[in-house]
């Protein structure tokens, strides 16, 4: 039994002279719903393609259920345990829903008939309709159905709700939660929709410029991160060095806004040592954590 469904360490990949992954580290606990976040071009799809054996890394290692995917034989074995939904939803447009499912089944010896009929009903997919005539949302659902039905222990989903309306998104999220709860499946999904990640993920990784910059259990990150809003009495009184845990400091006139990623009591101590300073504390959501970490730092003092 592996504690981690996916373990990536020091992964490197460049396209010509463009660096896509720069020592990426990633650990996805087995049984988690893991949100893989980043801006466009941050390295999400490259990482997923390497995990699926569709691209070779220039350096570092990637393991799925402990199997090194750099080894072609182990990679094949790992792939048989993964369900995959790509960004471009590559299905055969000339087939009907029913034909697509019948075509896919024989590749997977552990195909689940029970789940197939369940999800055909839940997702309300018309079996006789051609894939080219399906809406974007229905195509996502069909891919998800195929990924789930082949009995995968790990679902790798690249932007699974991309292009879906809010109602269809909620439906897909609800099913992902149900799959995680009932099949003990690990779900690894990339997204730049912070709200959906915040809604269903228990662990996250924020990737930027090919590196993991924030990673951990989402509720623990929320407990650690705080914003401190400081009002100074004297405009010049700012410490030259902040204690550890201060990630970003912004200043506007007499106000300092500090984003802290932990060590709060020491930071509070430092603020209280400033003459006449008063402060307030606010909880910080994923959106703020994300934006503060991936934004280009023009006003930042730290």
């Amino acid at each position: 039994m592996n504690d981690f469904a996916i373990e990536v360490s020091g992964l490197k990949k460049s396209y010509r002279n463009q660096r896509a992954l720069n020592h990426l580290d990633l650990r996805v606990p087995a049984g988690s719903i893991f949100g893989f976040l980043g801006r466009n071009g941050a390295g999400k799809t490259t990482t997923i393609k390497i995990l699926m054996g569709m691209l070779r890394a220039d350096g570092g290692t990637a393991r799925i259920f402990g199997m090194d995917i750099g080894d072609p034989r182990l990679c094949m074995e790992a792939r048989s345990r993964i369900g995959f939904v790509t960004e471009d939803k590559d299905l055969f447009p000339y087939m009907t829903v029913e034909q697509m499912i019948r075509f896919t089944r024989p590749f997977f010896p552990r195909w689940r008939d029970d789940l197939e009929s369940r999800y055909l009903k839940i997702f309300d997919l018309p079996p006789k309709r051609k894939i080219s005539d399906l809406s974007k949302g229905m195509r996502s659902k069909l891919m998800l159905l195929i990924a789930v039905c082949h009995g995968a222990e790990l679902l790798i989903l690249d932007e699974p709700t991309d292009g879906l309306d809010p109602a269809a998104t909620e439906e897909v999220l609800r099913e992902l939660v149900a799959i995680a709860a009932s099949q003990q499946t690990t779900i690894f999904f990339s997204s730049h929709q912070l709200t959906e990640v915040e809604q269903i993920a228990d662990s996250i990784c924020i990737v930027d410029k090919g590196r993991a910059i924030v990673t951990g259990v989402l509720d623990d990150l929320k407990a650690r991160y705080q914003r401190l809003q400081v009002v100074l009495e004297n405009e010049s009184a700012v410490p030259a060095r902040w204690v550890e845990g201060v990630d970003h400091v912004r200043r506007e006139g007499r106000t300092l806004s500090i984003l802290a990623s932990g060590n709060i009591s020491a930071i509070v101590g430092q603020i209280e040592s400033l003459p006449g300073a008063t402060f307030e504390r606010f909880p910080v959501g994923l959106k703020e954590i994300f934006l503060e970490n991936v934004r280009s730092d023009e006003n930042a003092l730290v």
């Binding site: 995680a180 709860a181 228990d202």
Partner: peptide
């Protein structure tokens, strides 16, 4: 049950368990 609550609220089952 944890599973029902996770599905009703569309939230992570591990979070409900916690």
């Amino acid at each position: 049950t944890m599973r029902k609550l996770a599905e009703d609220l569309v939230m992570n089952p591990n979070t409900v368990a916690r």
